[in-house]
Amino acid sequence: MPENDPCGKALASPKGELDPETVELLWQLFVKICDRWGNVPDSGTMKTRFLRFLSNRIKMNPAYLDHYRKAVKEIERLKQDTQIPDAYEHLFTNPEANNPPIQSSLQIARQLVSNEFISLQLSLGGFKEFTGAINYPGYIAGWNGDGPPPYRIPSQP
């Protein structure tokens, strides 16, 4: 999908499609993840793959249209709540949001949206900052050809 077409038909399913505003708010959530953990130097380079991910999730399971809409609404609610100093920090750290079963909008926003974005972000390269590794489960590092292998090897082989 072209990067300048973030809300194209690929973000649609027979049950509907995501409006551009929702897509943009989801992207903001992804950028906030990158900002909070500081593990991606330039999150903008991941936008095309992020949008493809949204498209794939909806294609696999149209219920994600609802999950994404609910998550965005929930984040907006948290932003409006004067008792919560930082909506995103609340979403990322509130332990109740991470508890099963998934029932509330907050749990949907955390477990089915934010947590999945974290897994995606790590698999797109976010892992490197934490360990210095060059490969990670989910990361497409390349093949075992004639050059150096696409993962760390012993210092004294």
Binding site: N135, A141, W143
Partner: peptide
């Protein structure tokens, strides 16, 4: 395609 070491 050759293995891309996706780890999954």
């Amino acid at each position: 395609a050759p293995c891309q070491t996706t780890g999954k």
